[in-house]
Nucleic acid binder design. Sequence first.
DNA 1: GAGTGGTCTAGACCACGGT
DNA 2: CCGTGGTCTAGACCACTCA
Lengths: 239, 239
Amino acid sequence: MLNKSALVYDDLMQKIDQEVYELGTYLPSENQLCQLYGISRETGRKALGLLAENGYIQKIRGKGSLVIEHRQYEFPVSGIVSYKELAQKMHVTTENLVYSFESPVALPVQAFASLGGEVKPVPVTAIKRVRIIDGEPDIIDKDYILTSVVPDIPKRAAADSLYAYFEGELGLDIAYATKEITMEPANSEDREQLGLDKGAYMAVVRSVTSLADATAFQYTESRHRADKFRFRDFARRTK
Amino acid sequence: MLNKSALVYDDLMQKIDQEVYELGTYLPSENQLCQLYGISRETGRKALGLLAENGYIQKIRGKGSLVIEHRQYEFPVSGIVSYKELAQKMHVTTENLVYSFESPVALPVQAFASLGGEVKPVPVTAIKRVRIIDGEPDIIDKDYILTSVVPDIPKRAAADSLYAYFEGELGLDIAYATKEITMEPANSEDREQLGLDKGAYMAVVRSVTSLADATAFQYTESRHRADKFRFRDFARRTK
DNA sequence: GAGTGGTCTAGACCACGGT
DNA sequence: CCGTGGTCTAGACCACTCA
């Protein structure tokens, strides 16, 4: 059982996706939503605020909540979504080849260093995977997961979805991530795994993922073929 | 005069930046904020919600609002911020060379096409600029602004800051933008303006900016030297 | 003037953490 | 047990749009 506001959010979002509420039209007014769902106005406003934040609607004072053009998820990432979730939404055939699995191994991962402290080796599970999209290897993912948070990772979880394992089976509450995108020349491992020529470029996404209790527990380096990389974002201006 | 919640947000944000509230410590509890600022709880919660959304704090039930590591703005963009605003925050010496200015000119800009309609030429002001950072030309910005929204743009506004002109002088209410990042080979214009060799790669950020009334009025293509490009993002997991 | 969204309030009940 | 944040409510007042 979710929140009322989350239920309203989901319902409105689905109806926008299914064009029950069409692009360029207005959602029911806030007072109408109160009656439609049997909720108070602030509860409805919370749902509308989320829709606005995620680019579904633009709220216009005196008029209403206008449905605006909404970009669906695109490869590889927007927000914080697992690879498997994305592949399902995109209806893409995808394979997931684990080519290296070490656990436990002590590695000096900068992302896990205490503030201002030394970068000391910490016990992690290190997983390297190649993502094969429509038959073509496009992405290398290197994951480093703290064994102090996740002591053991079954091989099948790595081959399927780490997020599904963390959240579904372990009940971890994944809360937020910081991400950094840069462009770098392909290294020999990139070229070997993805079959690239010398001089090829990669889009590299490095991210640190944290739990609801603010524990940083996963560091990921995701290396994409430059010609297949696309990142889409919706942002609101803050004043 | 801003909102109460915005005032509280700004105050807390500044105190976090100035380490009045240090990393790894907790903000005053919600009830304490009520007394500190003379506000109701929901008003304080709105401010805290914004801080959480922007990566300043992590709210932990039963404990409080924990100050977490917060990435300052980084070049070129995170969220929707003007180039000049960024340069000021980064304390970087920056120049802004307008090398092409055409107004009005009729161009077929896809971003302004009506839904499902033809891409017809529309009257825009077309501005091309080179951003020179610490003495080195790193970025080409190509802006196309609808003349139906902004009839006239003074040259000095292009040389200074378009956002400052739109918002400060025209009173436009810039609300949101969609952005797309890709990697592409440098074209001859890139190589000429930035002094690059053949075979160089560019990070290309294409964005459409809209006003509070949902009018898309500006299309920007921002082309960055690959080796200078960095994009940072903070994202929360949505369930 | 009627309807819309924007903000704020005072209070209620719940779930979780730590003592 | 008490303090924390999470959710929801009913009502108030304001600013804006449009007929």
